[in-house]
Design a binder for these strands. Sequence first.
DNA 1: TAAACCTATATGTAGTACATAAGTACCTAA
DNA 2: TTAGGTACTTATGTACTACATATAGGTTTA
Lengths: 226, 226
Amino acid sequence: MINDLTPIATSTRADIVEIRIREYLSNKKLKTGDTLPTELELAEALDVSRNVLREALSRLRMLGLIETKKKRGMVLSAPDILGSFERVLNPQLMDENTMKDIFELRLVLELGMADLLYLRKTDKDIAELEQIVKKDKNADAEEFRISQEIAFHGKLYEITGNNTLKRFQTMLMPIFGFVLSNSHHSIKSGVSHSDLVQILKNGDRDSFSDAMREHLRPHIEFLKER
Amino acid sequence: MINDLTPIATSTRADIVEIRIREYLSNKKLKTGDTLPTELELAEALDVSRNVLREALSRLRMLGLIETKKKRGMVLSAPDILGSFERVLNPQLMDENTMKDIFELRLVLELGMADLLYLRKTDKDIAELEQIVKKDKNADAEEFRISQEIAFHGKLYEITGNNTLKRFQTMLMPIFGFVLSNSHHSIKSGVSHSDLVQILKNGDRDSFSDAMREHLRPHIEFLKER
DNA sequence: TAAACCTATATGTAGTACATAAGTACCTAA
DNA sequence: TTAGGTACTTATGTACTACATATAGGTTTA
């Protein structure tokens, strides 16, 4: 009851200024390359000290929303949408639910990427996969096994040709690693990396989808315990 | 040739301080709830003005990495991993490639979520979907059609029970909306929302996967033109 | 003993001052 | 005339000081 009441968010001036500047940007429909007023002008217009204003600007600068150059002033720029994501992706600080959400997200991505793979794969890609898989047989050490996992699945993401997706996966790796070490490997998968490569090479999309699902089966089973 | 050379990133003191504090947090393996030194102590230790320090802290505060209270000082906290993402997701500023990447991402997610749906769906969910679909037949106006799309597919994300995934979708909606309006609807889908609901209700996972793929077919075809 | 009050302290905000880089315009010399 | 240099101007970057404000924690008082 009373626990549901979270303290009201008393926002600082910097918080408000950040929002106001955001609004300013979208209201004026500013685009990449457009210049902003100077710090002094903004500070005066918003009636805050330059100090507070700079705290807000510092945030936008970090996100890559604005870039500043001495004398030239500030220009609006296209942020790297994953850059900010990267900054908060610290497994150490992540609560367990989010961690599980992200683990599920990985499964959904890999189960759903078959179409992209078949649309974009090249002979060169297949050759690389075969190279990676070749090292699989002497995968006895735990550490080596994980690096093989990363190499193989990472390459799949790469084949999708979707750079955002690939980077996303790279960032999420530490999380995957964490959950992977959570020994739910009692169930052994019936489909190996090697099998997947062969199907990707010669089989059709549907077979691959089925195989991938079988390959990830231990993880999917794990979800049911949740 | 020469165009490939981007200007060297001359970082400000605030940039460096931000990184240093990050390192400090992970090196000391601090966890949620742990307290940080005071601003004065940090500023002195890093040999920067309190001003610069506060610009860096302001960034971490925005990300939700730290929370501050008067007198009590600063405590480390679990950031909302999607909050920062939301801040940069401005279609107005996004370059076209990223936009397309995100559109593909949506398709991958929806093609891959079948297992989660079958794992978590309830009778109540199905009933809600049927409610939504019921309005579909009088979907003549463009605007209404889009709102139906959002309601239906949004509900699917909700059924996955994965809150991160659902929020992710909500944020990405404006992007989807943008790409949707890019008239690649010449190809008509052979599977309607209503069909999907029926299969989700009575059919098995594989049938649903196939049906969803057929439903999204116009979009998948669109990818090939890329 | 409990309520009211005080005090020390850490963050929040403002203002001033100066450093630094980078455009701009002017000026000089070949 | 023009290339190249010089001085000036301006916007951001950094530092320092001062004070406001909230509050945890101790002290006094009824």
